[in-house]
């Protein structure tokens, strides 16, 4: 009984994010992960959902320092990913249910993945 896995990616605008996530929540999808990618001066945020191995990906592209609304009101467990997003990338996320305010993952250099981070290689042992 092998199930074929499918992955689909849809781009969403910042103002539609909450509505789209709510629709997926109502459709019985579970939150898989939220991850960011630096795409040269901006961030691509992937909100991934899954239902019976069918993978749906909402893709949001935001510039640096743009506030992103939290989806932890819809998916309670989203706080781990959103705090991570803030601590590693420096993306301000508003309204997280458990907001660690930058102490979830403490790093030597603030926001190591930030596109606006100044300085060269963050490695201290190169």
């Amino acid at each position: 009984m092998t199930v074929n896995e499918e992955q689909t990616t849809i781009s969403v605008a910042l103002e539609d994010l909450t509505r789209e996530v709510e629709a997926l929540h109502a459709g019985g999808y579970r939150l898989v992960q939220i991850g960011c990618t630096d795409i040269g001066g901006a961030y691509e945020i992937n909100y991934s959902f899954d239902k019976d191995y069918q993978y749906r990906n909402l893709r949001l592209t935001v510039g640096p320092d743009i506030e992103v609304p939290s989806i932890s009101g819809i998916y309670w467990g989203a706080f781990v990913y959103e705090n991570e997003m803030h601590d590693l990338f420096g993306i301000p996320v508003t309204g997280i249910n458990i907001d660690f305010k930058g102490t979830f993952i403490r790093t030597a250099q603030k926001y190591p993945f930030s596109v606006t981070r100044r300085g060269g290689d963050p490695c201290r042992n190169a």
């Binding site: 898989v32 992960q33 991850g35 960011c36 630096d38 309670w76 467990g77 706080f79 781990v80 990913y81």
Partner: peptide, 19 residues
């Protein structure tokens, strides 16, 4: 590679643990 993002099972299991 330009990016690797790794989401491990324990990270996903932390919210259930908290509950």
């Amino acid at each position: 590679l330009a990016r690797a993002r790794i989401r491990t099972p324990t990270l996903a299991n932390i919210p259930p643990l908290v509950k």
